[in-house]
């Protein structure tokens, strides 16, 4: 199945400025499995931006599947669906 992955700001520093890409992944791939795939693709720097030293999700990282933000570790077991959009971003700011 195909999904869209978006990388914002500091995450773009890990993807060599790829802002957005279509990825073909296996059915029932979970969010954490996608993160593992992206870490293999872009290096451990990608993973380090997501998790603290204690392997908790860094509260300053936003992972958004479609319009829904994932905040708990359990959310990472969410299975992705064809056509989903997943975004990796630092906290979003407005007004500058």
């Amino acid at each position: 199945m195909t999904i869209t992955v978006k990388y914002f700001a500091t995450f773009c520093l890990e993807t060599n400025f790829t802002q957005q890409e279509e990825l073909t992944i296996e059915e029932d791939t979970t969010v954490i499995e996608l993160i593992e795939l992206l870490t293999a693709r872009y290096g451990t720097g990608f993973e380090k931006r997501l998790f603290t030293a204690e392997k908790e999700l860094d509260p300053l990282c936003w992972i958004i599947v479609n319009q829904q933000r994932l905040k708990e570790k359990n959310d990472f077991q969410l299975k992705l669906n064809p056509g989903d959009t997943i975004s990796f971003s630092p906290p979003m700011l407005m007004g500058g």
Partner: peptide, 9 residues
Amino acid sequence: AIMRMAQSL
């Protein structure tokens, strides 16, 4: 950096 954030929101 705000440009794509504004778009996303």
